[in-house]
Design a protein around this nucleic acid. Sequence first.
DNA 1: GTGAAAGCGCTAACAT
DNA 2: ATGTTAGCGCTTTCAC
Lengths: 345, 345
Amino acid sequence: MTTASRALSNADHPIAEETRQAVLDAARELGYRPNLVARSLRTDRTLTIGIVVENLLSPFNPLIMQGIQDVLDKHNYLSITINSYWDPDTEIAAIQTFRARQIDGILLVESCIRSSDEVFRLAGVPHVFVHRLFDSLASGSVVPDDRQGGRLAVHHLIGLGHRRIGFINGPEGWDASANRLRGYRDELTAAAIPFDDQLVLVGDWEVRSGYDAARTLISCDTRPTAVFAANDLMALGAIYAAQEAGLDVPGDLAVVGYDDRDMAGFVRPGITTVQMPCQEMGRRSAQLLVELIDGHGDRPAPILIPGKLVVRQSCGGSNEPWDFEPERASFTRVRRRSCPDSGQA
Amino acid sequence: MTTASRALSNADHPIAEETRQAVLDAARELGYRPNLVARSLRTDRTLTIGIVVENLLSPFNPLIMQGIQDVLDKHNYLSITINSYWDPDTEIAAIQTFRARQIDGILLVESCIRSSDEVFRLAGVPHVFVHRLFDSLASGSVVPDDRQGGRLAVHHLIGLGHRRIGFINGPEGWDASANRLRGYRDELTAAAIPFDDQLVLVGDWEVRSGYDAARTLISCDTRPTAVFAANDLMALGAIYAAQEAGLDVPGDLAVVGYDDRDMAGFVRPGITTVQMPCQEMGRRSAQLLVELIDGHGDRPAPILIPGKLVVRQSCGGSNEPWDFEPERASFTRVRRRSCPDSGQA
DNA sequence: GTGAAAGCGCTAACAT
DNA sequence: ATGTTAGCGCTTTCAC
């Protein structure tokens, strides 16, 4: 019994190679699989981490989850996911459930819980906030660097010769809005373009609000030649507004978005946009969590993940005409067709 | 100890109400939370089910997962998810991992494993296939009724007066392709329209293939007045092909798609399409699995979930002009803004 | 290098 | 209606 355990769990206990093999063979023979529940009870480690996610339907979260899973896999952790639907009570209940199940750590994706202490008090285990939307500068958070992203977008437009650049921001109160605005101003300053608050409007992240804002910008006394929208949905609305006004995009109005959702590659013109670094956020947060669990590393300052610009056609600046992008999940599609066992039904 | 257990686990054991309250109070006082790992070891039930999913990036899977979670929640199950990336070896490894963790049942979403016996042999627990792509008619599967969906699409076109209707199908070998074609033929027959195989082309599910197929159809001797594409991506390609050829959609060519992805509501014209009943598939499969675990119910014949038609603008037939659809996940967005604790950062 | 025995926290069987 | 005891399957002392 003891020896068997030692052979299989490859502890650092000394053991005769011969015996080890004998055990391994016997195990294979009998189809023996150790019972991890019993092991967990004994060792106080479940090799399971709990994930509280706002909602898998948000376009970012599946990518974040994928980044997380990739790293957890490597460390032999599995995860239990609970949807919070942005309800604080549900989040708290989830954390208690995790505690009862003795999970080793918690990842909170787009959580609305503000205090890290509260999580620790409830669960008593290490945890990391991923893509926090409001207190993004708190420690133990992994978040996108929206200020840098804003700069990227505006820098691109300035590089294409634009000097009168409108900005359709998200609502106030969101860190994303504040930071993207900072990036916008940074680049104007760097290019010695005076800030004009007539050119800055606020939307609500949805298509219609981008459309409305763009109509206002277009009918401005000196209308902008380019617009930076703080997300792709509003960028799309801006494109439609321009097209309805008889303006060519990008010829008469260049538009750059933010997020790089699927949709940005399917519409015409394809939307040039700043990619939200979801997978990388997922990876880094899982990495950090594992380190915290292992006792290395401490809760560091917030980790900002830079995005990158994806150039399509809505700003010009690329010689490529609009092209058909393959679906993002399609690397699997390709394999599907050649999947060993999947012939005719 | 025993009494405490009985009070908390609300077994059907008789117990004095007074004692029960005393235990509950004490538990609250001490912040006691039962250790579910220990309970599982003892009871041989983990209240956890394993989900093998092809890939969370596929547009259907987050919706399916949501349907699953909703039902599992009600039954106090939690789930562990493993991505298979459409690799049979990974799937098998996942099932073995689940077994080692003593999960109570398995859900296989878009699995490429063909035999139910194999799963049972590996895991020894009940399991259900969800959205099987190839052996969809095997028992213990919950799948979309693609034949009915195909009928829905074509019926809609015929109802609008079209009699010459092209069909851009998915590749051979996929159950979805075969069944949507059946639906197409069913409706032609019902309307006494002769089947013309010149009007049926095959794509590879991607945008470009829809574009190419539509160009062929458009340059046909007697070009169709409508096209049914077996997914939204190919429908989009068809729309672009028509527009490039100077045809108005829906005026000169009506297009109906399949799946109802996000994108279908964002492009112009919005794509009229058959909605893949993802949430319902998720719900039904979780429901079935729970019944199998509880010993009620047996592995039934495949369960076909009907889809429904979502009318937008690509076929006409609606008086509404193109409108701005709210993002699907946006019901949460609305709550976000009013989330109790999420003020300025 | 190997084995014997204890015990993780719970619940089920068996007293009382 | 409550308490006592054993044991789920593993790992970890501790002895040999």
